[in-house]
Simulated scan of single mutants.
Amino acid sequence: METNNSKMIIDTHIHIWDTEQSSYNWLSGAPELLKRSYTIGELDTARKTAGIHAGVFVQADVQMEDSFHMLEVARNTDWIKGVVSWLPLADTQRTAKLLEERLLKDDYFVGVRHLIHDEKDPQWLLQPAVIESLKMLAAHNIPYDVVGVLPEHIETILNVAEQVPELRMVFDHLNAPPIGSGERYGRWGALMQEAAKNKTIYAKISGLGTVAGAGKFTPEQVTPYIEFILEYFGAGRCFCGGDWPVSLLARDYVDTWEVYKRTLSSLLPGEALEKVYAGNAIRFYDLKL
């Protein structure tokens, strides 16, 4: 198994959850495999085999208990370098208080995300209070992770970028490209091309096993979509994430990274590959390695 030890690789999308710490309401409708607590210790052997040098936690619940749990675990896990937290963006006053009194003082706090794909309104981010909170993030140079699954989510981000032009954002899981249907590239592609014109918007190559569906997460299946993203966003605005443990629904951790590494190494020369593996993530999240 090739581990790419010569190149630093940062996994920018790792989840942990403790069902005794938080409620994780979405787990009630999740596959049985995910309906338990997941600890970072479970990943240690696999991440070494996969050649992963550093990692970033990403929120998995819409309450602060989940984020505080991740921050505490990060402080006690030497290879975890940052946490993308949840914040109550629809409550600007509470968001401001949490930032000033807690999060901005924590070296592991590197970004914010809300589970917008679970909201009925794909324009949830365009609420005036949320926009004010996003402006607050931009003022503190804190980036925002976009977990979109619909073309309408991309349209919303185009609108957010107009209203908060200084805010750096990244599309988690490439905003669900149509890998399963094989469409190339449809409305998703047209909107991602439009989004790529904005230099503050990045693309996270992650979660494609879940997006692709059973049996379709192979280098051959995902290469056209990753190549498309690299063409429009460029190697300077893309980085990678494993999406463990959700990724286990498609492949194990080592195999997941093998798909990404084979695909990316076939598409990019060495210097560009190093940017996608680590350099861009370090810059986007301002990681301290």
Results as ranks from 00 to 15, higher is better:
L104T: 12
L104V: 09
I10P: 06
A46S: 15
A190V: 13
A250T: 05
G279L: 14
G234D: 14
T92Q: 10
C240E: 00
I14A: 05
W26E: 08
V170T: 14
A50C: 03
V222E: 07
W26A: 07
L134I: 09
P143D: 04
I205L: 15
M70Q: 15
Y285K: 00
I9Y: 00
D243M: 04
V58R: 10
F68W: 14
V58S: 10
G82S: 14
K81T: 09
L248Q: 11
Y277I: 03
Y38A: 08
G29E: 04
L27R: 02
A138K: 06
Y144C: 06
D107S: 15
E2Y: 03
A129F: 02
L267Q: 04
P245N: 01
V222M: 01
I80P: 11
V130K: 01
G209K: 06
W188V: 15
D243R: 00
M169I: 04
E132G: 03
E20M: 13
E42F: 10
I131M: 01
N76G: 09
L289E: 15
N175I: 08
G82D: 14
A90I: 13
Y108K: 11
I229P: 11
G51D: 08
E183V: 13
P165C: 05
I52W: 02
E183D: 08
A96D: 12
M1Q: 04
V130G: 00
L103N: 05
Y108W: 07
A138D: 06
T223Q: 10
A250F: 09
R36E: 12
A74Y: 06
L150Q: 06
A96T: 13
D66I: 02
M1E: 08
A212W: 13
T39P: 00
L115F: 02
E20N: 15
R168F: 10
D11T: 07
P31H: 14
Y202D: 12
D121I: 08
T39Y: 13
P177H: 02
D61L: 00
W26T: 06
M70C: 13
S6A: 10
G234V: 15
T45Q: 15
K135Y: 04
A250H: 06
D107G: 12
P219D: 11
G51Q: 07
M64F: 06
P151C: 05
A96V: 04
K97G: 04
W79S: 05
E152M: 02
A54L: 14
L167D: 09
L150M: 08
A139S: 05
G186D: 06
I201C: 09
G215F: 02
S265W: 03
P245T: 01
T39G: 07
G189C: 02
S85N: 15
F68V: 15
G51A: 11
A129R: 06
L87I: 12
P143H: 01
Q193C: 08
T263Q: 01
P219H: 03
A138P: 07
F57H: 03
L99F: 02
K288C: 11
D44E: 15
F228V: 02
G213F: 00
W244P: 12
L34C: 09
G270Y: 13
A74D: 14
K261C: 05
H117D: 01
I40L: 12
F228P: 01
I40F: 12
